[in-house]
Amino acid sequence: MKFELTSDQRDFAASLEALLASADTASIARAWADGDHAPGLKLWDRLAEQGLTMLATEATPVEVCLAFEALGRHAVPGPWVESAAYLPLALGHEVEGIATVAVPPHTPYALDADVADSVFLAGADGLTEAQPGERHRSVDRARHLFSVTATGPAPDDSAFELAVLATAAQLLGAGERVLADSVTYVKQRRQFGREIGSYQAIKHQLADVRIALDFARPLVLGAALDPTPRAVSAAKVMCGDAAYLASRTGLQVHGAIGYTQEFDLSIWITKIRALVTAWGTHAFHRGRILDSLVGA
């Protein structure tokens, strides 16, 4: 089957890309990490005006994936998966303001509960309002995690599947950004009188990342068209693997500078590391795929 985006979908993705490209999202992510939420909340309002908080209920999963790929590519902070993917389906309507949710055991903490207008806890009996408790550190400094009181296992429903798919799309976008920045860097960095990107070993590493991302993208779009648990889990696993490969390769080609917080690359690398286990670990999603294949 050949899948192509419609002209409206391409226009939507282009307008969103233009907005985010002009927003200096790296500075916004750094400010959010340091507790200055004002720039991020301003960007949140602009994105909400573009309709991102309405996509889960008013559009298709394809548009959701396009939006979250852009959010990942630009490292936009905030509980977007919670507010724009999970909660609209779980509640049955668009979320007012900013909301977040803990969905144990796969998402045990509520992301950015300190700035949310409402905090929820998903349990066996559905959603209940919750109060944030102890704050926990994340490898991604822009992800502020808070404990909420657990009441039981989370329901495995369409809201959860869309949240997982949105996270997969974020990983895909973040991986694309790391690859693009790495390609730009190896064309500029020179050693022994030549660009390091001219060395075959580096070309092969970057080509492996390109292939991994290109193989992950059809799984995301395929799951968006038919969001079965197996398809969604496959997309999450492939995007997680591809983005993690992009982050490791990005570190290798950048060298020691890639480890520093002052360098923008670190924003995407830490975000990828956090998102790989967000909304279900690799073990959980691989288990779902296996169970679906063997009929367990």
Rank of each mutant, 00 (worst) to 15 (best):
L91I: 01
A159D: 04
S247N: 04
V76A: 06
D214E: 15
Y199V: 12
A296S: 13
D156G: 02
A33V: 03
D45S: 03
D157T: 08
W32F: 02
D156Q: 10
S118T: 09
R230H: 09
K271L: 14
A234R: 04
V119G: 02
I28S: 00
H254F: 14
M238S: 14
P77C: 04
V237I: 14
E161S: 11
D264C: 11
F215K: 15
G240R: 01
D156L: 12
D208W: 05
L47P: 00
A84E: 01
S138H: 03
T57V: 15
R286A: 09
E176D: 12
G133V: 01
A70L: 05
L111F: 04
V183F: 06
L87E: 00
W268Q: 03
R194Q: 08
G280E: 05
R273Q: 11
A124D: 09
S27T: 09
Y199D: 12
G240F: 01
W32T: 00
K271A: 13
H254R: 14
Q191Y: 08
D45E: 05
E63V: 00
A56P: 01
Y244D: 14
V276D: 03
E69V: 05
R210C: 13
P105Y: 04
W32V: 00
L145G: 03
T228L: 06
T270E: 13
S266T: 11
S22I: 07
L41K: 07
R143G: 00
F3Y: 09
G78T: 04
A26H: 08
S15A: 14
A67N: 08
Y244R: 15
G250W: 02
H204C: 10
